[in-house]
Design a protein around this nucleic acid. Sequence first.
DNA 1: ATATGTTCTGGTCATGATGACTTTTACTGA
DNA 2: TCAGTAAAAGTCATCATGACCAGAACATAT
Lengths: 233, 233
Amino acid sequence: MVYSANVSERRQQSPELAISTVIFALRPDADSARPTLWLPLVRRTRQPYRDLWALPGGPLSPEESLPDAARRNLQDTTSLQPSYLEQLYAFGGLDRSPVQRVVSIVYWALVKPDVAALAQETENVRWFRADHLGQLAFDHNQIVDYALWRLRNKVEYSSIAYAFLGEKFTLAQVREVYEAVLGKELDPANFRRQLRAATDIEATDEYLQGGRHRPPRLYRYTGSTSPGNGPLG
Amino acid sequence: MVYSANVSERRQQSPELAISTVIFALRPDADSARPTLWLPLVRRTRQPYRDLWALPGGPLSPEESLPDAARRNLQDTTSLQPSYLEQLYAFGGLDRSPVQRVVSIVYWALVKPDVAALAQETENVRWFRADHLGQLAFDHNQIVDYALWRLRNKVEYSSIAYAFLGEKFTLAQVREVYEAVLGKELDPANFRRQLRAATDIEATDEYLQGGRHRPPRLYRYTGSTSPGNGPLG
DNA sequence: ATATGTTCTGGTCATGATGACTTTTACTGA
DNA sequence: TCAGTAAAAGTCATCATGACCAGAACATAT
């Protein structure tokens, strides 16, 4: 759209196309010190929904692919590099924006804790607990809810949890990821049995020292880190 | 796009937005008389990919929702009314179309056999076996493959199979749906045991007469028929 | 040095789901 | 009346899971 148009004209045009991303990271909770789900939001500086928090997003540039657009937007707004990126859904309801119709192709991403820790908050970028969001701009509450549903499903049947972890980790750390995502405690012994049966994690001969208990063995994830069931192979 | 533009200008504009649909139906195979997966395609009458077969699709009208656009398109091109409709994926690669960049939001649909039987073929609409497609226009082979993957997954963990069946059916008919979709035979006794344990199918007191064997009981599906895990509730 | 608290690690047991298979029932058609 | 066929019900071994128990290996306090 190189020419300007008023609101009623915009209503008749082809809908605007935008890319947004729901970004999840695990950060230690202030009280319990256990990891919990957080996500960064950006403050809207323009109408509509000025001063409300919204998902990072923007238009699709003509020469970039959809995931590239999501990645660039993530870099521009939050300086974050995701360890996992997957398309979530295309939202195209008629009343998503009061001004002009917008079709948003939404991605969801996971970032590792060390990367998330580097991204400092600014006036217009802030991290929120996934279960303590206020009212967001547009239909973004609905989008985040759907992304949470997808994350919780996917963590149970795929090896996505390791996108939250570093190269080496203890089985208890994996369990904490599951517990944070699913919101419930898991039996350590049974959880351990399942992970030992999985083929995509292998034991190293290193142990994590420093705890006031028996030092746990460190493991390594050997599987693929990309969304393997997508249409791209 | 109300004004015309040449190819190089189009390349720089905001990408075109289109809606397409992959439609599945079960039709009896000519040889084995067992149901197999078929899908209707439309012949392209214009460049690019003129005379190749493609998924039914078209632009998004300003005042219709995404699923409404898919439904209308399905009606316009194939006169089919789906018993199930769900968003598949948004395809936005740079080289999907040689002329202008197109972002396609693709839906997938299921139609019941009686509805599919009514839709007659024309010069530009023809049904193809899902496993015997030739080369399609654009990236539509890739899209169909992904839709098949989704269908096969979803049939195993959801109650989607009943979108292929009428109001009353025998357990063997349900099994034939699973066998056609998954492409493998299933043990009748074990399959029956699973369906009897499911809560969303109830037995009627009717039996299907006419076979040269013990008449099977008819059942009814009592669950929901809409995609229940979508972002819309 | 010893005790204590913690988590890691390995194990048992009952239960439920699954796959392979057998048997009986109820129909049609020769 | 018999043969053929699929429906319907049941058996058995195997496997995954949840609940639970016990010893091992550390740090810390006494």
